[in-house]
């Protein structure tokens, strides 16, 4: 590839030199972009920095590659089912794939002071990518952008004096009804 470039552009030696100088940086940048999971990939002047925050769940409703491409469709499909048809759970009683509440609960990001970041912060899960892609979303003009209560992933407890670092998110398959019965009161003042 190097020789090939050299051959093609040999009539302009300064251009070739510059290209060759930049090429490694370009390749590194491409590699970082391809490995999308990289946390805080510094790209030294090749565009804005992307930070893909780690989520708290074990796995998402679909593989990451599929989620990145298809999440708008899933959200749109399930919002019609939920709001207009009153379907709030799948046949097995688990949460719908496109439950924005569940998305927020798993993907909420905390800042240095251990507080959830809001939608106006670049660290917010949705913002981190959407800002890079220059896609403006208006979901959170109405929807809540951080979980309710103090760091609750699933409403297994009454949210009082619980150390959530011991709770592994995503391992409990409760229905929405169960969650409502277990923890009917969620104190949202802690945020």
């Amino acid at each position: 590839m190097w020789l090939h470039l050299n051959f093609n552009f040999s009539f302009n030696s300064s251009f070739v030199r510059k290209s060759l100088q930049r090429l490694p940086l370009f390749v590194v940048g491409l590699a970082l972009f391809a490995s999308f999971n990289t946390v805080s990939a510094s790209q030294n002047g090749l565009g804005p920095e992307i930070t893909i925050p780690e989520s708290s769940g074990e796995s998402c409703v679909l593989p990451s590659e599929q989620m990145r491409r298809e999440h708008p469709d899933i959200l749109k499909h399930d919002r019609i089912q939920t709001l207009r048809e009153g379907l709030r759970a799948k046949a097995d009683g688990s949460t719908l794939d496109g439950s924005l509440k569940q998305c927020v609960n798993c993907h909420a990001v905390k800042d240095e002071s251990n507080k959830f970041v809001r939608i106006d912060n670049d660290q917010h899960f949705c913002v981190s990518c959407h800002k890079y892609a220059a896609v403006s979303i208006d979901c959170f003009q109405c929807h809540r952008d951080i979980p309710e209560g103090s760091g609750d992933f699933h409403a297994l407890t009454n949210h009082k004096n619980i150390n959530y670092s011991n709770v592994v998110p995503g391992t409990y398959n409760l229905t929405i009804k169960d969650m409502a019965n277990i923890a009917p009161e969620v104190n949202s003042d802690d945020n």
Partner: peptide, 9 residues
């Protein structure tokens, strides 16, 4: 608005 409840966007 900010700080909506999660059940009522």
């Amino acid at each position: 608005l900010t700080d909506q409840t999660e059940n009522t966007p």
